[in-house]
Amino acid sequence: MSSEQKPFVTDDTQVQTETRDARMAGADDRFNSKLREAFGSSPFILTKFDKFMNWVRGSSMFMLQFGIACCSIEMMHTYAIKHDLDRFAAGVPRASPRQADVIIVPGTIVSKFAPRMKRVYDQMPEPKFVVGMGSCTISGGPFQEGYNVIKGAEEVIPVDIHIPGCPPRPEALIYGIAKLQERIANGESSPVTVKPYELEQFGDLESDEIVDKLAAQIDEDDLVMRYNWADSP
């Protein structure tokens, strides 16, 4: 996107740079245990223990019962008869995010929902993993050009596995989850990216045209998500 000529575009490419740096540096403490921090190096026992823990986490996961759009129908099929995701010990849907390990994001994320999804994600206990299901969670999919559509789940939360397709077949979802399990078992993890869209307090936003306009409507300490559409990929 040639962002220079357009209005509403951040002058510098700051947003993208931050994201890219974070991706490349791979700043990542999702697996870090307190024990390891205490010991510093990696004694044999801890290594073995880490391996065991990785295997454990890769071999059993509770999913969040979470449906957004069309892809969630295929997701239901994946849980159900015939495809039966539970064979891989990954088929127990929990309704409460507090008890889930994996969130499958099955569908298009729009502006009104993104803050809520972020909140649900935040409510899950670490270590947690995200499976982006469908083109919508990659780029916005068929709705990429929509005025209201977030261009991919990664704009809001970090995603470990992307499964392409519209919708991906249940087999593809199973493959994706198996792949995720494999990666977890090997101790690989995706970097936590710095996302362009964060939940922040309204009072913390830099004041500009739109912020000033909304000042009467929104309290200082309300959580908001600001979308810079022009900066979106």
Binding site: M53, V56, R57, S59, S60, A89, R98, D101, P125, E126
Partner: peptide
Amino acid sequence: LTIVTDAVRLLSKELI
């Protein structure tokens, strides 16, 4: 073995 993995995993999760 799910019994083991489930138990260990749940115990090792972050307590919110």
